[in-house]
Every structure is written in structure tokens, then in C-alpha cells.
């Protein structure tokens, strides 16, 4: 884990001015901040390691599983049509729990309820593979998350978390991703923190990872206690970030340094 300490002083001063939201026209995907060699890995399907998970996900999509002996494909058919645009609407409101759930949780609820199989652990190869395969069907589709009015209170909670200073470094997400996105933190571009490419392959991780993994890394970076995978706070943050990126095109599986 790279240390965020070095720039704290500078950010605290910048942060005191107060967070400002990024105007619609100035929003940029994390992709646009990357070096040409990292972009080249993302651009070509046969060079993008994230596609290995997509391939695995395609195999899992067709595999019968659980007590019902049903495959995802038995109910949803060809993912290229049935899953197109789905990832662009998540997190979405779940009637059963009365809360927003993200794409991973949605897939796991199909596993429990419709396949009668055990839910897949967060960050497991299988859950990442299925999520990457489903998300891939929305490549290029503009994000629509947040349209459902039932989501409003949860978006508000996510926004509050995003704005709130926390951790030993006493920084909020907004202090980096709204106020200092055009600067660098040690070697890394800070970026505007748009969740357009998840799940994505991070060279540092040597693996695909979920948006929750990325958020936990940023929270640990400001030396705060990261929420557990699946925690309502993480889903609310995901929801706020997706709403903040509304209209931007999905690009999963992306590649980041």
C-alpha cells in the first residue's frame, strides 16, 4: 500500500477552501489519466487480462449449479441481449431487503434464490468472473444508476460519506477526487474517481478486483477503518459514485496501474 501521507499537508489547505463538485462537461474517466502503455492493455481484448475473467464468467454462465441444477443461461438465455445495459443500472433497489444492492450482490441473490446454491465469497474468482462477464455486456452503455426514487435516501447517505473527512489523515473522498483530481499523489494520477471500469484489472493487484476493493483501498489509504465487503456503507458509496458518473460510458473490464 502506497502511503498517502506525503501530500496530506497540501490537501488539508486545499480542502479548507471547501469541496466543489465537478461540472458535467469536465468529467473524465480514469482511463484518460493513464499512460499510453496502460491504455493499450485495456484497448485490446487479447492483451487485457480482465478478459480472462470474462471468459471464465462465460463458462460459469452456462454451468448448472445448486439444488435446482440450473445455469444462469437457463433463465437468462444469451447474456449479450439479456444482460446488455444491466450493469449500467446498478446498484439498484432490492425490494426483498428494502435497500440498494450492487451487481455482485444481485448475482449472489440469484445464486441463493434461483439456483439454491451457496453465495460466492466477495472477491472470489468465480464472483469476479460472473460480474465481469455481466458488466462486459454493458461496455459503452451510458450509466443510468439512481433513476429509481426509492434510492434517494441511500444516495444521500453515500454522498455524506463521500464528503465526510475521516481517518488519521482526516480527508474526505471529495478532497482528492473533486478538489485535486488534476494533481498527482506520489506517482499516481488522483483522477476524478469515476467507477466506470469495474470490475477492473489493477497491475498492482495482479488481478481483477471489485469497486468495493478499490474503495476499501482508498479508505485504508486515508488511515481509516475500511468497511467490510458487502457493508451498507460501501454499497451507498458505490451508488453515489455511479450516480455522480451518470451518462458516462461503462468500460469494464478496465485496466489501471
Amino acid at each position: 500500500m502506497r502511503s498517502f501521507g506525503a501530500i496530506t499537508a497540501a490537501l488539508l489547505v486545499a480542502g479548507a477552501v471547501g469541496a466543489t463538485e465537478i461540472p458535467q462537461a469536465e468529467r473524465r474517466s480514469g482511463y484518460s489519466f493513464m499512460k499510453p502503455d496502460t491504455r493499450a492493455i485495456q484497448d485490446e481484448d487479447t492483451a487485457n487480462p480482465g478478459m480472462l475473467w470474462v471468459l471464465d464468467g462465460e463458462a460459469l454462465w452456462k454451468r448448472k449449479s445448486g439444488a435446482t441444477e440450473k445455469a444462469c443461461a437457463d433463465c437468462h438465455g444469451d447474456a449479450r441481449t439479456s444482460m446488455k445495459g444491466v450493469a449500467a443500472r446498478y446498484p439498484a433497489f432490492d425490494k426483498a431487503t428494502g435497500r440498494p444492492i450492487d451487481l455482485e450482490q444481485r448475482i449472489n441473490s440469484c445464486r441463493s434464490n434461483h439456483q439454491q446454491a451457496t453465495p460466492l465469497p466477495f472477491e472470489s474468482r468465480e464472483l469476479l468472473a460472473l460480474t465481469a462477464f455481466v458488466a462486459r455486456q454493458s461496455q459503452g452503455v451510458p450509466i443510468e444508476t439512481g433513476a429509481d426514487p426509492q434510492l434517494a435516501p441511500f444516495i444521500a447517505k453515500g454522498r455524506e460519506l463521500y464528503m465526510q473527512r475521516q481517518g488519521q489523515l482526516n480527508l474526505g473522498c471529495t478532497n482528492c477526487h473533486d478538489d485535486n483530481w488534476d494533481k498527482r499523489l506520489a506517482g499516481s494520477a488522483i483522477t476524478q474517481g469515476h467507477p466506470t471500469g469495474y470490475p477492473l484489472y489493477r497491475l498492482e493487484w495482479q488481478s481483477l478486483g471489485s469497486l468495493q476493493r478499490r474503495l476499501r483501498a482508498c479508505i485504508t489509504g486515508i488511515r481509516a477503518q475500511a468497511y467490510d465487503y458487502g457493508a451498507p456503507e460501501l454499497v451507498e458509496l458505490e451508488l453515489y459514485l455511479m450516480g455522480r458518473a451518470r451518462g458516462m460510458a461503462l468500460e469494464a473490464p478496465a485496466v489501471r496501474p
Partner: peptide, 8 residues
Amino acid sequence: MASALINV
């Protein structure tokens, strides 16, 4: 699960 991507 092992998979390969080939570009020829």
C-alpha cells in the same frame, strides 16, 4: 479455471 487469449 485456466483460460488463454490468443491473437493470430
